[in-house]
Amino acid sequence: MPLTFELDPAMTPAFRDDVLDLWTEVSNAGGAVGFVPPVTREEIRPSLVRQLAVMSEGRARLLVGYDEQRRAAATAFLTFNTDRMSAHWLWLYTVMVHPRYQGKGYGRDLMAAAADAARGFEGVEAIRLACRGGLGLERFYGSCGYKEVGRVPGAIRVASGDDRDDITMLLPLG
């Protein structure tokens, strides 16, 4: 069954917990979403609170993909630039698909829904995202139309002796 996508869902306590659970499960499955396993909900909570604060200021939007039980199965934060000279593109952050749904095309669906949402924002012409090297993410994003536009070797330290490239990808929306 395909996911149902919604932009800017109601921020109820239950929904916030649902996103926190998703973020924790994705992180503990090895997802490159800002943490290294093992991680707890309480370790992730401050990052979610920061994202929600940015949303409350109108600087970001949340796209969520719901499963058939209306649980958050996929998310992405679309974050606007505050610099007026960069206002023609936005960042895509914390792109997640629940581990039980990976390999079913839901990641590609999420990326298409994010591009569709961005096309609806006045003046936005492109999406940028950063991804961690060593996981094949750049191949996945490339298959969704993104092009690698920058790479900083060893910029992400996953663990002592395990440095990964920070890869910047761009999707023109035109």
Rank of each mutant, 00 (worst) to 15 (best):
P2G: 00
P2N: 11
T4I: 14
E6I: 08
L7C: 08
M11K: 14
P13W: 03
A14K: 14
F15D: 02
D17M: 14
D17E: 15
D17P: 09
D18P: 14
V19S: 12
L20P: 05
L20H: 07
L22A: 12
T24D: 08
E25I: 01
E25S: 09
E25D: 15
V26P: 07
S27G: 11
V33S: 06
G34T: 07
G34M: 07
F35W: 04
V36I: 14
P38W: 00
T40D: 13
E42L: 13
L48F: 12
L52P: 08
A53T: 13
A53K: 14
A53W: 03
A53D: 15
M55F: 09
E57S: 14
G58T: 02
A60Q: 07
L63P: 00
V64Y: 05
V64S: 09
G65P: 13
E68N: 07
R70K: 15
A72L: 10
A72R: 08
A73D: 02
L78G: 02
N81Y: 03
T82A: 13
T82K: 14
D83I: 13
M85Y: 14
L90F: 01
W91L: 13
L92T: 07
T94K: 09
V95L: 11
V97S: 01
V97E: 02
H98F: 06
P99V: 06
G103T: 02
K104L: 15
G105R: 03
G105S: 06
G105K: 05
Y106L: 11
L110H: 11
L110P: 13
A112V: 12
A112T: 13
A112W: 00
A114F: 04
A114K: 01
A115Y: 00
A117V: 02
A118D: 07
G120L: 00
G120D: 01
G123Y: 01
V124R: 02
E125V: 09
A126S: 15
I127Q: 06
I127C: 04
I127H: 08
R132I: 10
L137V: 05
Y141T: 05
C144Y: 00
G145P: 04
G145A: 04
G145R: 02
Y146H: 01
K147D: 13
K147N: 10
E148R: 05
V149M: 01
P153F: 03
P153N: 10
G154Q: 03
G154H: 03
A155Q: 11
A155I: 01
I156G: 03
V158Q: 10
A159W: 05
S160T: 14
G161I: 06
D162Q: 09
D162V: 12
D163H: 14
R164K: 11
D166S: 13
I167H: 05
M169Y: 00
M169G: 02
L171Y: 05
L173I: 08
